[in-house]
Simulated assay, not measured.
Amino acid sequence: MTRNFQAVPVVDIAGLGSSDPSDRQAVAQSLGRAAREAGFLYVTGHGLDPALIADLLAAAQSYFARPMPVKMGCYIGGSTNHSGYVPEGEEVFPGGKIDKKEAYDIGLDLPAVDDRAPMMGPNLWPDDDDFKAAAAAYYAAISGLARRLFGGFALALGLPQDAFEAHLTCPPSQLRVIHYPFDPQAEPDQQGIGAHTDYEFFTLLHGTAPGLEVMNGEGRWIDCPPIEGAFVVNIGDMLEAWTNGAFVATSHRVRKVGEERYSFPFFATCDYWTVVEPHPAFVSDARPARYPRLVSGDHLMAQTIATFGYLKGRRADFFATPAFGQEAKV
């Protein structure tokens, strides 16, 4: 498959909620085509209340306008489960440059830390009730949409719609609230975020301004600007591995922004201890398994350690996890 797409496809997913199997299958067919040919798509017909996005945007604008010492009071390095404020320079892809962005990372808010699963536990929240309320409401809603998409992708792969349900009991899916400040003095090659693929199963993204670009099979960067009422969805490493490469995790980046930009990616994944390896349905003599057997959460943690400064040296044992994500695809 050449994957030489020139535009990111749009899929209306309203039919996933239909009682008619043919409606659900029609959506699944479109999802599967986009996942195979581009690895990126826009989804409409999702039914999420636009007020959730507006509230999160207002909360993000207020939070990131705070003085740096206040924001650093919730520095992610002080958290128990990789949540909190991420200053510029904290996150760098191996061999890459410092990204021009700041962020706040939020996970599944649990009452206690699981020492065996380092991404699980209570969030580190700022002293800001509006931010916490807006982020928690958005997280709950986008998690529900992600579950629907897991069902749609399962159908697209010829599996039962509930094929992933057993692995979605307590997933360490992460919401990032990202701020890309506009700096007219930035170097011409300064990127908002460097080229990479995402580590999880797939990502659901809302962005407020242009800047996102996707690499096609020709090695060309294709613009992926916001479409009103749509979310961007992209396939991640775990779903590429699960499907033995049938679905593609596509490299993407945020170029130097021409205006202030906010972005809310939700990285949808399965339970921490989910074993990920090519599903038997996608392995044959003609197409042998291409990916190693690994544990979903351990892969996520290993890749996170490789990019976050505060984690390097803390859990060096995780570097033993086979890497096949952004380092192999940039």
Results as ranks from 00 to 15, higher is better:
S251L: 08
A241L: 05
R253E: 01
G229Y: 00
A241Y: 01
V248G: 05
Y272N: 05
S263G: 03
T269S: 07
F264M: 02
I235C: 10
Y262C: 06
V275K: 13
W242L: 15
E260D: 14
Y262K: 09
K256E: 07
A230Y: 05
G258N: 13
L239Y: 11
A230N: 10
I235P: 05
S251N: 13
S251V: 15
H252N: 08
W273Q: 14
V276M: 01
G229W: 00
F231T: 06
T269N: 02
V257N: 13
M238C: 08
T269E: 02
F267Y: 14
V254K: 00
A241K: 03
R255C: 01
G236I: 10
A268Y: 07
D237L: 09
I235H: 03
F266K: 11
E240A: 04
V276T: 08
I235T: 12
L239V: 14
V254M: 00
R255P: 00
T269W: 01
G236M: 10
V275W: 08
K256H: 11
E240D: 00
N244V: 08
E260H: 09
E260V: 15
V232P: 09
F266M: 11
R255W: 00
V254T: 06
A268Q: 09
A230H: 08
R261S: 07
L239F: 09
S251H: 07
R253L: 00
V257H: 08
F247K: 12
T250N: 08
V257E: 10
F247S: 13
N244R: 05
A241D: 04
A241Q: 04
E228L: 04
T269D: 03
R255I: 13
Y272I: 10
G229M: 00
V276D: 01
F266W: 14
T243N: 04
V275I: 15
W242N: 09
W242M: 14
E260C: 06
C270M: 14
F264A: 03
P265L: 04
F247R: 12
C270N: 14
G245P: 04
N234P: 05
E228F: 03
T250W: 01
W242V: 13
P265D: 05
A246H: 11
F247L: 15
H252P: 04
W273V: 12
G229A: 01
Y272S: 06
V233E: 03
R261E: 07
M238K: 05
G258L: 11
C270G: 11
R255H: 02
V248N: 08
W242P: 10
F266N: 13
F267E: 09
F266P: 09
A230C: 05
A241F: 02
N244T: 07
A246N: 13
